[in-house]
Write a protein that binds this DNA or RNA. Structure first.
Lengths: 169, 169
DNA sequence: GAACAAACGTAAATATATTGACATAAATAA
DNA sequence: TTATTTATGTCAATATATTTACGTTTGTTC
């Protein structure tokens, strides 16, 4: 009995280590294979994330830079770089917000919308199918649940993230 | 009945999208909060991953650059950069392998070992506790299982990764 | 109206990320 | 012995990442 307790106490750090290492590896592969999947369209995974976010109905009228950074959980400066390159490719545009002259609303252009709907969507769909092969619907839901929970914990660790608790999907 | 089937078909892409977006966000936060957790020691998350890997018993005698890159699933060139900075801080050393003069074995220095054992370990432990708050042992095991499975899928997607299927933990 | 705060662009410094490519030395295969 | 392959360092180009900081404009509070 006390051996069992001792064993399970010894197990937890190893599991945590293993879990985060796997997460690290998975992410490395996500970026590698994801970017490659969209090579034909010269879109990186971060650009993919931005474009995907902009397709959301809630962002159809445009989203402020700061809000988008908070949603994606990246720094504003880095996002600015990504946005600038997407703008250069005519996939997004920046517009002055009507109710606040300081604010810039980021939104998809027609070209960007077309890229997403006609070029990226099918590739992404195939990619997801391959990456989630063998995952049942229940598996997916469970994994989302775990990632959700972890994300909440990360946000609790980060003082700046508290103001953005509303950034739920 | 056909409505139910239709509904579950409609659900899968949304779940996949949601899952990968969560993964993306989690990773962004992992790097952000993880690096900050080790600010006192000026260690980034990637350096953490390298140092952690080098503490493995199997790598005690040193590990070749290419093997380490394959283990961590990062590019050789990027790893070289990380290693060079760790070497500059005297946390690792490179040694010519005995049985192959072309090969460089990467291993922890005494200083690196001490950094890991005495400085990083406690911080990491606390960090993991916080990041995995509310996760039971079973949750952790399931999460690892899912990540394992996904990693396998990613590797299947990547022609170069096939040679490294042995890189299991 | 003055003081303060916020939104964004920008700059700087540092670290990570990839791919493609090349050169050199060493190991392996023919 | 020669031809081929391999391990690593290096180069180049591009893209992402963070933090700290500053400046300008605009909005909000007192």
């Amino acid at each position: 009995m006390s051996e069992k307790i001792e064993k399970s106490r010894d197990l937890a750090p190893r599991l945590a280590n293993r879990l985060f290492f796997r997460l690290y590896q998975c992410t490395n592969m996500l970026h590698k294979t994801g970017t490659r999947a969209l090579d034909d369209h010269h879109i990186t995974t971060q650009q993919w994330a931005v474009l995907g976010a902009l397709t959301r109905p809630a962002f159809e009228g445009g989203v402020a830079v700061g809000d988008l950074a908070a949603f994606l959980l990246v720094s504003r400066q880095n996002l600015t770089g990504v946005l600038t390159r997407l703008e250069a490719m005519d996939y997004i545009e920046r517009a002055v917000a009507e109710n606040d002259n300081r604010s810039r609303l980021i939104r998809l252009t027609t070209k960007g919308r077309s890229l997403w709907d006609e070029n990226m969507r099918p590739v992404i769909s195939d990619y997801y199918d391959a990456a989630l092969r063998g995952f049942s619907t229940e598996d997916r839901i469970h994994m989302i649940h775990y990632l959700d929970k972890m994300l909440r914990n990360f946000k609790d660790l980060d003082p700046e993230a508290h103001a953005d608790k509303k950034a739920a999907e």
